[in-house]
Simulated assay, not measured.
Amino acid sequence: MIGNIRGILLEKQPPEVLIEAGGVGYEVQVPMTSFYELPEVGQEANLCIHFVVREDAQLLFGFANKKERAVFRELIKASGVGPKLALTILSGMNAQQFMQCVSMEDVTGLTKLPGVGKKTAERLVIEMRDRLSKLAKEQGYADTVHLSADLPIENTFVQRTDAKEEALSALLALGYKPPQASKVINSVYTEGVSSEALIREALRAMA
């Protein structure tokens, strides 16, 4: 099983990155909250990995730290939540924010994420409340954490399309509907903004 990858970051096309390690290029899907913490293309990156093997594919999901990966692993144990939805949830809020939503039974906050309806949000709270509380105690996390909309955006990456197209592609990959994604991108777009910053602002606007 692959648990960690350290290598040179070759490409950043949210929510996927390409990392070369030992002469092999690994395609890794990364939630946006972890994506923001990646270095620039050409620099060394390190990701905690969750490896999924299916009949038709072998998928790698990468995270900035073990906490994000641990919450992802708890998410995919929940009824009706697969890796794609878990990735979307951890793109709209980081692990600490998700844990707080569950702890505070904030169903409304969870339903703002694409693919999470009221029933799914209620089920997440019921199924994951005790598990996440146990995880917090086992790994030394605070039971409740401060919700912050600010996420690091210092890093930029080489853009293969313009900022709006890059951002739209990322939001669609995360499960947002085209009309919703286009509308919010246009509302937060400013001249000269990077794709990464635009994605961040779009996700914040939909929170």
Score class of each variant (00 low, 15 high):
42 G>S: 15
55 E>P: 07
164 K>C: 08
22 G>S: 08
41 V>T: 13
32 M>N: 11
204 R>T: 11
195 S>G: 14
58 Q>L: 14
173 A>H: 03
140 G>E: 14
100 Q>D: 06
195 S>D: 14
16 E>T: 15
85 L>N: 02
145 V>C: 10
136 A>H: 00
116 V>G: 00
196 E>S: 10
203 L>R: 05
32 M>R: 04
15 P>W: 02
146 H>F: 09
175 G>A: 09
7 G>D: 10
182 S>R: 06
48 C>I: 09
139 Q>K: 11
60 L>N: 08
64 A>D: 00
186 N>D: 13
118 K>D: 10
31 P>R: 06
193 V>M: 14
125 V>Y: 00
13 Q>I: 07
59 L>H: 06
33 T>E: 00
11 E>L: 13
21 A>Y: 03
1 M>R: 12
149 A>N: 15
58 Q>M: 15
4 N>L: 14
108 T>S: 08
129 R>F: 11
52 V>L: 11
108 T>Y: 03
48 C>E: 13
39 P>Y: 12
39 P>F: 09
21 A>R: 01
172 L>Y: 08
201 E>N: 12
114 P>G: 09
65 N>A: 09
108 T>E: 11
19 I>A: 06
102 V>Q: 01
201 E>L: 12
76 I>H: 03
176 Y>L: 13
162 D>F: 11
4 N>M: 13
184 V>N: 03
26 Y>P: 12
79 S>V: 09
80 G>D: 01
115 G>L: 09
89 I>N: 00
26 Y>H: 14
34 S>R: 05
135 L>F: 04
45 A>L: 05
191 E>C: 03
64 A>L: 07
173 A>S: 15
75 L>I: 02
99 M>G: 06
182 S>A: 11
186 N>E: 14
144 T>D: 11
21 A>N: 15
86 A>S: 09
69 R>D: 01
98 F>M: 04
175 G>E: 09
167 A>K: 01
37 E>T: 13
67 K>V: 11
7 G>Y: 07
180 Q>F: 04
65 N>L: 11
175 G>D: 05
122 E>L: 12
51 F>M: 06
91 S>L: 02
96 Q>R: 14
151 L>C: 02
24 V>M: 10
151 L>K: 06
101 C>D: 04
